[in-house]
Design a protein around this nucleic acid. Sequence first.
DNA 1: CTACACCTTAACGTAACGTTAATGTCAACA
DNA 2: TGTTGACATTAACGTTACGTTAAGGTGTAG
Lengths: 254, 254
Amino acid sequence: MEYTVQKLGQIAGISTRTLRYYDEIGILKPARISSSGYRIYGVKEVNILQQILFYRELGVNLDIIKDIINTNTFDYKTALIEHREKLLEKRNQINLLIANVDKTLSAEEGRISMSDKEKFEGFKQKMLDENELKYGKEVRSKYGKESVEKSNNKFKNMTQEQYDEVQKLATDVLETLHVAFLTGNPASELAQKAADLHRQWLCYYWDGYSKEAHAGLAQMYVDDERFTAYYDKEYPGTAQFLRDAVLIYTGMNK
Amino acid sequence: MEYTVQKLGQIAGISTRTLRYYDEIGILKPARISSSGYRIYGVKEVNILQQILFYRELGVNLDIIKDIINTNTFDYKTALIEHREKLLEKRNQINLLIANVDKTLSAEEGRISMSDKEKFEGFKQKMLDENELKYGKEVRSKYGKESVEKSNNKFKNMTQEQYDEVQKLATDVLETLHVAFLTGNPASELAQKAADLHRQWLCYYWDGYSKEAHAGLAQMYVDDERFTAYYDKEYPGTAQFLRDAVLIYTGMNK
DNA sequence: CTACACCTTAACGTAACGTTAATGTCAACA
DNA sequence: TGTTGACATTAACGTTACGTTAAGGTGTAG
C-alpha cells in the first residue's frame, strides 16, 4: 500500500500541508520520492503518523513528539504521566483565570447590590451584610452567586435559637481546633471533630453541602490572609491546620 | 506625572517592547511625543494600561481588548461572561485530554493484564502480585493507592464465572465485529451489537463507564498501532470499524 | 568632553500550520 | 495528439504577542 500526500491525508484526516510540514521538520519523512518528485508513503509511515497524531491529540509539542518517535527506547508511560502533570497545571491556570473573572463579575454585582442595601435592616441583616462583606465575594466567585443567595435566604429565616447555635458552633470550632492544633496531627480524632464541627457550622450557611466546596473553602482559609488572620489570631498555623484536617475529613487529600 | 517607556514599564511591570507594541497596534498611544521622538505617557494612559493589563490577565485577546477600550458603549459584563464561557470550554477540553491520558494509562495496564492472563490462567493472585510489582508503586504514587486498590479488588473479587464471562465477552466482541465488518456499515445492527459488547467488556475494567471515555478509547484503537494490530490481526480495518461503531453507539459522532 | 543610561526604528524569530501563487505531472477523453 | 482537470511541487507570507538583537540618536552627570 503506497500513498501520496492527499491519500494519506484523507485516511488520517489531516491536510497535505501538514504532511509537507512534518516532512520539513523531519518528523515524518516519506518512504521514498517518486521520479517526478512526489512524496510516497508506505505502511510504516502510516503507523508512525498514527503515533504522531495520537500524541498530538493529547496536546504534546511536536518537538517532543519528534523525540518520542525518534527514540526507540522511549518510555511511553513516563511520558504520558509527565504530560498529565502538564495538563493538570494548565487546568489550574485556567481555574485561576475563571476565579478571577468570577471575582470581577461578582465585584461588579456587589456595586449594584450596594444600592439595594437600604432595604436591609435588623441585626440579622447587619450580620448578613458583614458576612457578605467578609466572605460573600470569595465564596460567590468560587461557587456562583446562586449558592450565596440561597445562603443569605437561609440565614434570614433563622430563628433566634438557630442563630445562637451558629454562634456556639463557631466558637466550638475554634476551641476544638486550638486543642487539636497542640496535638499537631490533623488526622487525629480531635482535629477531625473540629472539621466536623466546621462542616456543621457551614451547613447553616450553605444550602447544599459538598466535600469539594468544603475543601475549597478550607484551602481559601490558607490562601486568603483575612481568613488566615481570623484563625491564626491565637495560634499561628491554625488555619493551615484546619485546612489539612478538612482535607482529610473530606477525603480530598489526594 | 509624565512617564517614558521604561518608567511606565517599571510601574506596570511590563517590558518597553510591550509598550511600543501596544502603540504600534493602536491599543495604547502615548499622550504625546517629545521633541526628540520619545514616547511620553500621562495619567490617563496609566489608567488605560491598567485596564489593558487587567483584561490581559484574564486571557483576553488583544484585538478584543482594543474593542473594549475603544468602545465606550462596550458591555463589559457580557464580554466577561462570554470570556468565562470560553474558559470553561477550554477547561473541559483539558479535562477530556486528562481523561484520555488516564484511560490510556489504565488501558495499558489492562492490555498487559490481558496478555498475562492467557499465560497464567488460574493464577490470578500471582498475576496481581506481578502487576503490583511492576506498576503498583508507580501508579500508586501518582494517583493515590485508592484507585489502584479498587481496580485490584475488583479483579480479585471476580468469580471464576465472571472471569470466564470477560474472556467470552472479549472473543464475542471480536467475532461479532468481524461479521459486522463484512457488512461495511458501522451503524448496522450487528456493528452496534459489537459496540455494546465492547462496552460490557469495558465495564469489567472501568469503575465508572462514560460515553466520552468509551469513544476516546475507541479512537485510541485507531491511533495506537498496538491496539490496531490486535483488532486488525484477521481483518485489517477492523479497529477503525470498531471506532466508527462505538462513535455511533455513544453518539459522539457529531 | 565623555561616559553611560536611555530613547528610537527596523527586522527577524517564535508554533504549527493555512493560504495563495506559480508551476510541473498524470490519467482520461475527444 | 492535444486538452482538461485533478493532483503534485516549492516558495513565501500571515497568524499572536511580544523577545531579541542591531544600528544609531538623546539626555545628563561627572
